[in-house]
Amino acid sequence: MDDKASAGVSMDSRVAGVRRETAETTLNLRKKSRPGENVIQGFLLFCGVLSMFTTIGIVLVLGNESLHFFTNDNVSITEFLTGTQWSPQIGQFGILPLLLATLVTSFIAMLVALPLGLGAAIYLSEYASPRARKILKPVLEVLAGVPTIVYGYFALTFMTPLLQSIFGKDTVNIYNMAAAGLVMGIMILPLVCSMSEDALSAVPRSLREGAYGLGATRLETATKIVVPAGLSGIIAAFVVAISRAVGETMIVAVAAGAGPNFTLNPFASAETMTGHIARISGGDLSYDSIDYNSIFAIGMLLFLLTLVLNMGSRRLVRRFREVYE
């Protein structure tokens, strides 16, 4: 574009110039090749496709190393999936203790995150004034932004002593699944809350009015109309929350304990799948040892678990949107 100074002066001559040009040359409307545009488009395509390579990379890496693991003489897939002892030193590779610890910590986390997250979502979407919501929501989001290692510290230095003072030092181990699970629940609460709130606020106003018009109270409208109407969105939130809990590493690595332990006792120390991967890879790990390969097999299981959960959740959200859009 011309700057202002020249714009006024050159107007006439430019108009004349355009005319002269069309008069002298025949107009060419043929497609021109624009190499610059093509290069850029190529780069953009590469950026878009890179994510595919990431996924392929994850699958190949996890698959390949797991294959090495399972082709090892000491290991069989059945033993891996059904064994109740994980002690690489003596060649025992049963995933169940790690899996169980993952399930116990996740379950405890869900006991905290699901009811509180849904309760908070109902409060924010059905009760809170716009002003209160404007203050409360960002504060809850701060919880979601705190790094998980900080939650790990919190679990170890606050939650564990708290549990010990309630249930006694003899009952509650310094490293225990309960403290890790409870703190993980607090960490996941904002996720459940914000996804559920999205689902609740997507329920059309007209349904609420219909209920009020029949003489329903606010509570009845919320729990009998709005929550059932938003149910698939809420379940989607729950499923994502479970996936987050299963994949969470630092809280359990710090607070749940180091060392596989096949137990349901929440006050006992036990290592989760993620905690085990973190501990083994944090040590001095030599490539191509069976330890190295074994963490990839655990990783594979972890990846598949979370993938199924996440895909299921997004399917639910999509179905929910189809109903109301």
């Binding site: 059309p204 007209s206 349904l207 009015e209 219909g210 209920a211 009020y212 018009g213 029949l214 003489g215 109309i225 059932p228 109407a229 109903v323």
Partner: peptide, 15 residues
């Protein structure tokens, strides 16, 4: 509202 019911512009049956 129980005594004085209401029907709205757009039909709004519950799901």
């Amino acid at each position: 509202r129980r005594r004085i019911g209401m029907v709205f512009q757009k039909p709004n049956p519950f799901p």
